[in-house]
Computed example of a mutant assay.
Amino acid sequence: MSEIDYLAKRPEVTQKLNKAIKEQEQKKAERAQGVRGGGGGEDDESGEEVSGEATEQEVALFVDIGVMALKDVKDVEMQTANPPLLQKGMLHYEGGWPKEIDVTDDEQKQRYCKKLEKEEGYTQTILGLCDTMETTILQNSAIDIYEEYFEGCEGLGGEDVSSGEAGGKGGGDRMLKVKSEFKDQHDRPALDISIQKQQQQERFAVAYGPYYYQQPIKSHDSLIWNMTSSSSPEQTLNCYSPAVSVDFHSRENSLLCCGFRNGTVGCYDLRKGPDCICTTDVSVSHKDFVTRASWINSKTHSELFSAGEDGCVKWWDIRNMAQPTDFAYCDPTRRNEPQNALVVSCLDVKFIVAGSE
């Protein structure tokens, strides 16, 4: 449908068209009467048949067509071709080598590296790359991996703290850092630690137990940890009572003595398994829990001391644990009576020194 046909069907346009058609018909009729009355004259130029509908030319004479709402008409229509898109990846196995160098041949790469080292300007190029690399590293501001946590603190320092000279005040610039974290799966508090240094590896024993006597505990076992592996313990020692004190033998690397909460003392041989090889009887042991068990230097390498809450220090030989070799009470009156004994909280076997609360 053309725009003229569309406008011709509107009411206001139709009224104008009908009015114009009637005026045109009247003019034609008057002309026709004048021809008949005059008996001749000029021929009727409008010999066309008058119809009730307006033609396109007539509508165009009386209608003002707006062009604001007309549809756009394309003179030329074309479809451009889409560019092909491909997704590709690249495996950077080893780069920086010339094309003639086979990266899978180590000998060929070594020869090429030696050839480069002999060229002039090699040293200056390496020094220039070091400056560039240092600048790039310092630009990493996301995580400050070079942060000095104890900057400005006295007593922390770098070389020899015992000399008291390095690092100025406090004996040097030594830094304290956590190397590894050894965590018990039962979250028990550690009561005592004994470190053993060997030629090939370092390990330590930990006694776990409750702080208070009636506090419940999930496990009585003590653990042997290797310093090179913090994920799991190297060995688990089966303890019939929570261990309060542990001590590695200074010469026999496989021997370990323990003081237990029930007052007994036991000895473990790590080569023979996780169970005690010998233990004291409850009747001859401490009347309260053991505070310290420690080996002493002897010719037989089988003697140890133990101290307890009952105020008694006992001398044991693991070759015969039925009875203590000797014992003494921490009695300030020097009467060696248990009712006057003070609690022995610490023990040093080098000079047989006992401390009390």
Results as ranks from 00 to 15, higher is better:
residue 6 Y to I: 15
residue 8 A to Y: 05
residue 8 A to N: 02
residue 9 K to Y: 04
residue 10 R to L: 08
residue 10 R to Y: 09
residue 10 R to F: 04
residue 11 P to W: 10
residue 12 E to D: 13
residue 12 E to H: 10
residue 13 V to A: 09
residue 13 V to L: 13
residue 14 T to P: 02
residue 15 Q to R: 09
residue 15 Q to S: 03
residue 15 Q to F: 12
residue 15 Q to W: 04
residue 16 K to P: 00
residue 16 K to C: 07
residue 17 L to F: 01
residue 17 L to W: 03
residue 18 N to F: 12
residue 18 N to G: 01
residue 19 K to R: 10
residue 21 I to G: 03
residue 21 I to Y: 02
residue 21 I to C: 00
residue 21 I to S: 02
residue 22 K to R: 08
residue 22 K to L: 09
residue 23 E to N: 13
residue 23 E to P: 02
residue 27 K to P: 00
residue 28 K to P: 06
residue 28 K to W: 06
residue 31 R to K: 11
residue 32 A to D: 13
residue 32 A to N: 13
residue 32 A to K: 11
residue 32 A to F: 15
residue 35 V to P: 00
residue 35 V to I: 15
residue 35 V to N: 05
residue 36 R to I: 07
residue 37 G to L: 12
residue 37 G to M: 12
residue 38 G to I: 07
residue 38 G to L: 15
residue 42 E to C: 01
residue 42 E to S: 02
residue 43 D to A: 11
residue 44 D to H: 07
residue 44 D to V: 13
residue 46 S to D: 00
residue 46 S to K: 00
residue 47 G to D: 09
residue 47 G to I: 01
residue 48 E to I: 14
residue 49 E to D: 01
residue 50 V to R: 10
residue 51 S to R: 14
residue 52 G to P: 06
residue 54 A to P: 01
residue 55 T to N: 15
residue 55 T to L: 10
residue 55 T to M: 07
residue 56 E to W: 09
residue 56 E to C: 11
residue 56 E to Y: 07
residue 56 E to P: 03
residue 57 Q to L: 00
residue 57 Q to E: 02
residue 58 E to I: 04
residue 59 V to D: 01
residue 59 V to H: 05
residue 60 A to R: 12
residue 61 L to R: 11
residue 62 F to E: 09
residue 62 F to N: 04
residue 62 F to I: 14
residue 62 F to C: 06
residue 63 V to R: 05
residue 63 V to L: 07
residue 64 D to R: 10
residue 64 D to N: 09
residue 65 I to H: 01
residue 65 I to L: 06
residue 66 G to C: 10
residue 67 V to R: 04
residue 71 K to H: 08
residue 72 D to Y: 02
residue 72 D to M: 00
residue 73 V to P: 05
residue 73 V to K: 13
residue 75 D to E: 10
residue 75 D to C: 00
residue 79 Q to W: 02
residue 79 Q to T: 15
residue 80 T to N: 05
residue 80 T to V: 05
residue 81 A to S: 02
residue 81 A to R: 03
residue 82 N to D: 13
residue 82 N to R: 12
residue 83 P to E: 08
residue 85 L to V: 14
residue 87 Q to G: 02
residue 88 K to D: 08
residue 88 K to P: 01
residue 88 K to E: 14
residue 89 G to K: 08
residue 89 G to Y: 10
residue 90 M to C: 10
residue 91 L to T: 11
residue 91 L to N: 10
residue 92 H to I: 12
residue 92 H to S: 10
residue 93 Y to P: 01
residue 94 E to S: 02
residue 94 E to W: 00
residue 96 G to K: 11
residue 97 W to H: 08
residue 97 W to Y: 12
residue 97 W to G: 03
residue 98 P to F: 03
residue 99 K to D: 12
residue 99 K to F: 15
residue 100 E to D: 15
residue 102 D to N: 14
residue 102 D to K: 13
residue 103 V to Y: 13
residue 103 V to N: 08
residue 104 T to E: 12
residue 104 T to A: 06
residue 104 T to Q: 05
residue 105 D to W: 09
residue 106 D to C: 04
residue 107 E to P: 04
residue 107 E to C: 05
residue 107 E to F: 05
residue 108 Q to F: 08
residue 108 Q to W: 03
residue 109 K to P: 01
residue 110 Q to M: 10
residue 111 R to T: 02
residue 112 Y to H: 08
residue 113 C to A: 03
residue 114 K to C: 06
residue 115 K to V: 03
residue 115 K to T: 12
residue 115 K to I: 03
